[in-house]
């Protein structure tokens, strides 16, 4: 994924913790082989080569990532679109047969906007399997997932800063059992709106915090679904929040208790921009 993955964890045996981190990195490598669009024999490359009516089998993880991507496409009205306007709904996903079928040719997907988060979600489940409940794992610093905080702390300390001026600290957070994702523009960067093809204006950065669902305590076999895909969802929403209108962001947050978003607009004439925060009203 051409980025850095890191695991922070607390355990009395450093070697045990290092082995768990190694297992995480092996997992990320495997996902890369399935999800990279640059690898000709990845699941994604095969999907991108599908002619009209053709289908291909994919791994359970690829299919799951696509299902999440499809949900977020619907939720955001196409603002989050892993097909970048080439027609995500034209792909039929069959989770039972693990088959992806293209109703028409020419659909090209790029899971870059969700793959890191998805990998981080699976990494967190792996760390829980290793009983490393006090952990933080991130992909490229933009997809961060925190489990329980280290002993004696209430949460993991996280900060939000201005991508155009990294020294400018915008907010401090303390988080546990949540995913925090960031998307931002440095000078010269641009994001294209998949719905219109136009470059996005007026937004410099967005962050989304998605609470992690309670750990399923049921007798779950090692790493079988359903995933608690908080980081994948956070990744996707953050991308969407770079382009959605403020009212749309507000209504998505209002309908999703626990979800929080921050948006940094493009600087005004005086060069300043204030961070905006969105969250569901707290229940009395």
């Amino acid at each position: 994924m051409a980025t850095i993955f890191e695991v922070h964890t607390a355990h009395p045996d450093a070697q045990y913790a290092a082995q768990a981190a190694q297992a995480v990195f092996d997992l990320v490598d495997r996902l890369e082989r399935e999800l990279s669009r640059f690898l000709t024999n990845s699941d994604v490359a095969r999907i991108n080569g599908l002619a009209a009516g053709a289908s291909t089998r994919v791994t359970p993880t690829t299919l799951e990532c696509l299902v999440i991507a499809r949900h977020l496409y619907d939720l955001t009205g196409g603002a989050f679109d892993v097909s970048i306007g080439t027609g995500l709904p034209l792909l039929e996903l069959d989770p039972d047969g693990l088959v992806v079928r293209a109703r028409e040719g020419g659909v090209r997907i790029d899971l870059g906007g969700i793959g890191k988060g998805y990998a981080v979600d699976l990494a967190a489940e792996l760390l829980e399997e290793w009983d490393l409940g006090a952990s933080l794992v991130h992909g490229g610093f933009s997809s961060v997932l925190v489990l329980e905080p280290p002993p004696a702390l209430e949460g993991w300390a996280l900060t939000l800063s201005d991508p155009a001026a990294p020294a400018r600290l915008l907010a401090r957070l303390s988080a546990r059992q949540a995913a925090l994702s960031a998307s931002g523009l440095r000078k010269g960067d641009h994001i294209r709106d998949p719905r219109t093809g136009e470059a996005v204006r007026g937004r410099r950065a967005a962050w989304t915090l998605v609470p992690r669902p309670e750990t399923a305590k049921a007798d779950r076999a090692p790493r079988e679904g359903p995933r608690m895909a908080a980081a994948a969802v956070a990744d996707a929403l953050t991308t969407a929040f770079m382009l959605l209108g403020l009212e749309e962001i507000e209504s998505i947050c209002a309908a999703s208790p626990g979800l929080e978003a921050w948006v940094l607009p493009e600087a005004g004439a005086d060069g300043s921009a204030d961070l905006m925060h969105f969250a569901a009203p707290v229940e009395p």
Binding site: Y16, Q19, A20, Q22, D131
Partner: peptide
Amino acid sequence: VAADLGAPDRY
């Protein structure tokens, strides 16, 4: 360089 392979204690 890679760490030796390990296993979750509980398994």
